[in-house]
Write a protein that binds this DNA or RNA. Structure first.
Lengths: 185, 185
DNA sequence: GTACTACAAGACCTCAATGTCTTATAATCC
DNA sequence: GGATTATAAGACATTGAGGTCTTGTAGTAC
């Protein structure tokens, strides 16, 4: 399964790393939104703090959050006491709202085998199977809210206050970027 | 959803085209295998003929098929009367066998949200949902055989002898690359 | 109003999947 | 055995997602 290289070139077809449900960008967005939603108070969160807590490249996260500001599910405040915060309640933000700015869901309307026409009238061999799975996925995106995700995450953290997660930003006493800078002085 | 470009660079995060179930390469492989399996006789099929019938870049398809020869689900014969053909019966070739050389299915063991640990003990907010969908998908890969896919395809072609498919290679009288060359002379 | 802080935004870099080009090699027909 | 046909395989080109760097701009504290 590993790449087989001889000299400078690839002998066989380069092995790809397989399918992703979300793009890397969308995955970052989901995790960041959950993190923001689980912060106890509604205070704006610094992009750098989020990046630090979640292990996401800071600059990249910043641009990503700006995109979400543009789609009106986040707002940003500049200057001191600034940062990113939710525009509306987490329960009204659906998973789909977070993903759509990055992953084109129209992809799911296309045939899984790339046939130009694939519907009930003329389907590809995997149509029946895929149409079921696809619908489950799309339903989940439209149904599940940010609140649901945040609740789940908080519940987990409380019941098993453990070191299983790298992300502990929601835990009181978490060291922020600001704290670290203060220490260095 | 479209790319927003100003001058040479991209203003916002480049919009990705979303998730793919199969990589492009694996998709090609599946379609090629179905095509080979639906050829009436067991005669070897030319790579160029397949590429032509399926609209796949010929050289790329050639390399891809060579990979499948290496994994022993295809065999190739050089020279005249040569081409690619199945090693064993289509009913013993599972969808998984076709995909695995290209798409790393271990990807499906990982967390959909990229958390280092995500199992029953400590799950991400989407774990319950995703573990169901994932299993359905993996089951389909392990269960469905090339014969199933070929039967489905042949059935469709017979019942609705229509112009809905670009691929008509299984239809008797199909013009092959060889035919075209003959015409040009 | 000046210094500071934090978001905003475009240019640029990297890498892997995908696709193309060219040459080598093997099998068959005559 | 020589011409022909078709696979084999490495080198090279392309493209877009992901990621970094640098500079600009806006808001706040004092």
């Amino acid at each position: 399964m590993a790449l087989r290289r001889t000299g400078l070139s690839v002998t066989s077809i380069t092995t790809c790393w397989g399918p992703d449900v979300f793009s890397q960008t969308a995955e970052y967005a989901i995790r960041a939104m959950i993190e923001i939603a689980t912060r106890p108070d509604g205070k704006p969160v610094l992009s750098a703090d989020l990046a630090d807590a979640l292990g996401i490249p800071p600059q990249y996260l910043s641009k990503l959050l700006q995109s979400l500001v543009r789609t009106r599910i986040l707002k940003s405040v500049r200057g001191r006491q600034g940062g990113f915060s939710l525009v509306k309640s987490a329960s009204t933000v659906k998973l789909r709202d977070i993903i759509e700015p990055f992953d084109d869901l129209r992809k799911y309307e296309e045939c899984i085998l790339g046939q130009p026409v694939c519907n009930e009238a003329g389907a590809c061999p995997l149509h029946d199977f895929w149409s079921v799975v696809r619908q489950q996925y799309l339903d989940e995106l439209s149904t599940k809210s940010l609140q649901d995700l945040a609740d789940y995450q908080l519940d987990k953290l409380h019941t098993m206050n453990a070191g299983l997660f790298r992300r502990v930003g929601a835990v009181p006493g978490k060291q922020t970027v600001k704290d670290q800078k203060a220490e260095q002085k």
